[in-house]
Amino acid sequence: MQECRIAAHDIACRRGERVLFRGLSLALHPGDALHVRGANGIGKSSLIRILAGLLRPFAGDVARSGTVGLIDERHALDAHMPLGRALAFWQRVDGPADNEIARLGLSHLLDVPVRYLSTGQRKRAAFARLLGQAAPIWLLDEPLNGLDADAARLGEALVGEHCAQGGIAIIASHQPFTLQGMGRLELAGFAP
């Protein structure tokens, strides 16, 4: 895995007229995992988007080395396409990496159009897209939403393996996320 690092220095986030959090700093090194926790609307998703570089922080700065893989509520899979073709598009963009279709339980769904898949199945497809990207930094926004108990364990295991191989994972979720040695960050502590 390529060398990776992500650090945020004294960042603040403002949405509309409201400051969601401020004074937040973090630094993660290869193998680190961080669980960002907090109630709905506290700014978890905004933090993920800021760390991904998709949203500009109101103050502070973010430094990254290594590509970012993102899972959020928008899975970037064409709804009308069979799952196999929707994932094949990303494989053409990302290059040939194993996206562990069988392990994610998607093998029998490859012919099914994405719009007929359930929420949990789509989430598993998003994991397949993420694995195929082979990015060292994973930013996951509510990755366990909609997953059944077995799939949630699998999601946790995948994050564990990713970190064991020297990757970084930041998980924003209000749900518990079980992973040994995982850091925790309560976003409520940074509310103004």
Binding site: A52, G53, L54, T67, V68, G69, L70, D72, R74, H75, A76, L77, D78, A79, W90, V93, D94, R129, Q133, A135
Partner: peptide, 14 residues
């Protein structure tokens, strides 16, 4: 944009 494609492309440097 709604499906999140532009975000994913941006992350890949496209």
């Amino acid at each position: 944009i709604e499906l999140g494609f532009f975000d994913q492309w941006a992350l890949r440097g496209i």
